[in-house]
Amino acid sequence: MTAQTANQERLLQVILSPVVSEKSTYVADKNEQVIFRVAKDASKPEIKAAVELLFKVQVESVQVSNVKGKKKRFGAHLGRRRHWKKAYICLKPGQEINFAAGEA
């Protein structure tokens, strides 16, 4: 399945939320990257297509990483928070994501 053929409905479900953290603001300044939390089963081409669709920008590259959920203990029971996928989106030079407009 390539990004071109993926149907739009799927693309709208790929991106979950922006990640706002110290690290995300740091990389945004340094590498002009934006970080999103994405669906666990999303692929790089899907993410690229989704960002281009939602925010009307051009994406240079996408890097992903799987984040393990934290281990938490409740009494005697060991539990685990959900794993999730993080995507670093590098935009083409001169592009910017306007969050306020994009989510409309």
């Binding site: 706002v20 953290s21 110290e22 603001t25």
Partner: peptide, 14 residues
């Protein structure tokens, strides 16, 4: 205190 940042490390922009 803003979620995702250590106290005092929040960028002015945020």
């Amino acid at each position: 205190k803003i979620h995702g940042f250590r106290p005092g490390k929040v960028p002015v922009k945020i």
